[in-house]
Structures are given as structure tokens and as C-alpha cells.
């Protein structure tokens, strides 16, 4: 970019502003990160010595492992199922025109806009009525509901970059509808499908409110964290928090890399 005409003063101000914004967003997380390695019992300045004792405490706590196992189990199933559902919805939008399509799309995108407390309550009320509350499956069902729209949005964006002639070209070359799906649509959307897998897993991994309502005894990690917090203030929270943060950031970053790369590929094609 050509910065030749920009005033040095404004330039400096803008850079400072960016730093400030990032500081504002990341300071609490950084604090939690720093204190998780602090030997002191209470988060206070000056810091004590460097220590991994809280991580050890967490690692030896069977309750934490329980929560983690639940979280991973739920996250895995949720990401696979909601990616499949999201792909289906996105493909429907790409391929078909039908009466009421805008309503269909609005409904499909709705769940994340509902306040989570209301969503959690509704889920609890509904799932307990059909005897599905308080189990891992309850968390899975609820998470699929909020994760599918994310998967759909990601896949839909990818499909919108696809030359609509591509699928017809596959048919024209002898591919049945299923073969075209397998050999053209899915390979084209593959980066988005992986992106959706990671993002939905991250969403499920972090989600607290709904899990708190419906999980019962099969608590996921975020729900466990709240349990700790209510029992006693312990730097273990910082350790778990750091772990959860690093995990979901990793998932989101992987998804970002996949999705930016697909954008770049498409741009090369589109440029010509």
C-alpha cells in the first residue's frame, strides 16, 4: 500500500490504536495465562516464582479428565454431525430455487441469534420431556443445533465461489448426480468442510450456558470450571482456562488457515 501521502502523526496514532485494541481484548486472557504459572495462591502482584504446580494439580484431578473426555467426545460428534447438516443446507441453497427459500435460509441461520440462556432453558424443557436430559446426548443435540448454522455459513460461502456450470459440466461429462457430488462438489468444498469441522468443534468446546442447563452429571469442561469457581478460588482455574483457550484458538487458527487458502486459490482463478 502506498503510505506516501499519510501524515506520520496519524500513522502513529492508528498503530497505537490497534495495539490498544488488542491489549484490551487479550489482557484478561494474558493475565490468566501468566497467573497459571505463578506459584502464589492468589492472583496478585508482585508475582511469586514460576511453577507448573497448578497444571500438575489439574492433570491429576480425575474430575478434570472426566470433563475433558466429555468435552472431546461431545465436540467430535457435534463437529461431524453439524458439518454434514450444514453442508446439506448450504448445498440446498446453492442448487435449488424453491418457494419460501428465504424463510428456509433465515430459519437455518437462526439458532445462534437466540440468547443462549433462553436456548438452554428451552433445550432443558424439551429434552427432559422426551427423557433425553442430563446425558451426553443432550449436550450433543443442543450443540448440533447451535453449531450447524456456523457450518452452513462456512460451506455456503465456499459454494458461492463455485462456478455454477461446474456441477452441470460434471453431469455433461457422464457423472450421475451422486458422482458429481462426490467428485466435484465435495472436493471443491473440502477446505470449507474441514474449516467447518474445526470451527464447530471449537464452538462446542467453548460453549458453556447451554451445556450448564442440559449436561446433568456429564459436565463438559467449561461447566466443570464454573463448579471449581463456585467451590473455591484456585489458580487451577487459570491453568484450565489457558488450556481451553489454547485448544480453541488452535482449532480456530487451523480453520482460518484452511479458509484463507481456499480464498487465495479462488482468487487466482477469478483474477483471470
Amino acid at each position: 500500500m502506498n503510505n506516501f501521502n499519510r501524515s506520520k502523526f496519524v500513522e502513529f496514532g492508528l498503530r497505537f490504536y490497534i495495539l490498544l485494541s488488542f491489549g484490551f481484548v487479550f489482557a484478561p486472557i494474558a493475565a490468566s495465562f501468566v497467573f497459571s504459572f505463578n506459584s502464589d495462591r492468589f492472583p496478585s502482584i508482585p508475582l511469586g516464582s514460576f511453577s507448573t504446580e497448578w497444571y500438575q494439580a489439574v492433570a491429576t484431578d480425575p474430575l478434570v479428565w472426566d470433563g475433558l473426555r466429555n468435552t472431546l467426545f461431545v465436540g467430535f460428534i457435534v463437529s461431524v454431525v453439524s458439518t454434514i447438516l450444514g453442508f446439506g443446507a448450504a448445498y440446498t441453497d446453492f442448487r435449488y430455487r424453491f418457494f419460501g427459500k428465504s424463510v428456509y435460509m433465515a430459519l437455518a441461520l437462526l439458532p445462534p441469534t437466540i440468547p443462549v440462556v433462553i436456548m438452554g432453558l428451552a433445550m432443558l424443557a424439551y429434552l427432559s420431556r422426551i427423557n433425553l436430559s442430563g446425558q451426553s446426548i443432550s449436550v450433543i443435540i443442543s450443540h448440533i443445533v447451535i453449531c450447524s448454522p456456523f457450518a452452513m455459513a462456512i460451506t455456503r460461502l465456499r459454494l458461492s465461489q463455485m462456478d455454477p456450470d461446474l456441477e452441470a459440466a460434471a453431469w455433461n461429462l457422464g457423472a450421475s448426480e451422486w458422482a458429481a457430488m462426490r467428485y466435484v462438489i465435495v472436493p471443491f468444498a473440502l477446505p470449507a468442510i474441514f474449516g467447518a469441522l474445526f470451527i464447530t468443534m471449537a464452538v462446542s468446546f467453548d460453549e458453556f450456558a447451554i451445556s450448564w442447563f442440559v449436561s446433568g452429571l456429564n459436565e463438559t469442561l467449561p461447566v466443570k470450571v464454573l463448579g471449581f469457581l463456585q467451590g473455591q478460588v484456585s489458580p487451577r482455574i487459570n491453568a484450565i482456562g489457558t488450556f481451553v483457550f489454547v485448544t480453541s484458538m488452535t482449532l480456530v487458527i487451523i480453520a482460518q488457515i484452511l479458509l484463507t487458502r481456499q480464498m487465495r486459490d479462488t482468487n487466482i482463478v477469478a483474477k483471470d
Binding site: D165, A168, A170, N172, L173, A179, V184, P187, F188, L190
Partner: peptide
């Protein structure tokens, strides 16, 4: 159906498969 006709078409947009290389594109049919 179109996939059972032997009426291949060259498209205005060409509609080449961007995720396949040249020879894979040619092999597709």
C-alpha cells in the same frame, strides 16, 4: 438424463475443475 447422453459441451466459462490438474480434468469423463 444428461449424464447418459454422449453430448459433451465446451462451456463459455470453460467450467474446468479447479481442484484437479490438467490431466485429471481430461480423465474425468
Amino acid at each position: 438424463p444428461t449424464w447418459q447422453r454422449d453430448t459433451p459441451m465446451v462451456w463459455q466459462s470453460l467450467a474446468l475443475f479447479p481442484f484437479l490438474n490438467v490431466i485429471e480434468n481430461v480423465e474425468f469423463a
